[in-house]
């Protein structure tokens, strides 16, 4: 476990900012307890300081996880967000998309969101913007990137893809062996 280098922090924050925008400051300045990002085996964990200090006492070969895993650095040093970060993304996200019940399962199986399945969408969402996807009961079920802006979506036909799938909670079942 070690703190992130400047380079890594920059990559991570750029990625996070795509979803939470300026709210990223809330991740760092928390009223309850200072939180920090830590790198462990190429994975980035977001963790409260007390938990972090205690987990630091565990030999790294035996430490598997602590706090919340946000994602990992690829071999090319890009950052890839994991579904496990959804909790915080949903809390601070600026742009949201709600899918109707009939679009819920297709999305949870890893498909893109088509226009017919959109229940609601945040006004003035730009193109290629990171969005968190909710079901109509307001539970976050994944995240993705918009293919079109809100304005353009109105003119699309129902089968057109509106949000590109990036990650969904179905991965807890599908990718359990590779994700953790």
């Amino acid at each position: 476990m070690r703190p992130l280098t400047e380079e890594e922090t920059k990559t991570l924050f750029e990625k996070l900012a795509r979803y939470v925008g300026k709210n990223i400051t809330h991740l760092i300045d928390r009223p309850d307890e200072p939180h920090c990002f830590r790198l462990h085996e190429e994975k980035v964990y977001y963790v409260g300081e007390t938990t972090m200090k205690k987990a630091a006492g565990i030999n790294r070969d035996h430490l598997l996880s602590f706090g919340t895993c946000f994602g990992k650095f690829t071999k090319t040093r890009k950052f890839r967000l994991h579904i496990t970060a959804l909790d915080y993304l949903a809390q601070y996200s600026k742009y949201k998309v709600w899918v109707k019940p009939n679009g819920e399962m297709p999305f949870l199986y890893g498909n893109h969101v088509v226009k017919a399945h959109i229940g609601r969408i945040t006004e003035d969402t730009p193109e290629h913007q990171g969005v968190v996807i909710y079901n109509m009961a307001d539970n976050p079920i994944g995240f993705g990137t918009t293919a079109r802006s809100t304005v353009e979506i109105r003119r699309l036909d129902p089968t057109a893809i509106v949000v590109f799938h990036q990650s969904d909670v179905g991965e807890y079942l599908r990718d359990e062996n590779t994700l953790f």
Binding site: G48, I58, L64, G67
Partner: peptide, 18 residues
């Protein structure tokens, strides 16, 4: 793996896995 998955799925933040 199942343990870590469940911890994350249920939104537990105060846990370390050893």
């Amino acid at each position: 793996k199942a343990l870590v998955a469940n911890i994350h799925r249920l939104g537990i933040h105060n846990t370390a896995v050893a």
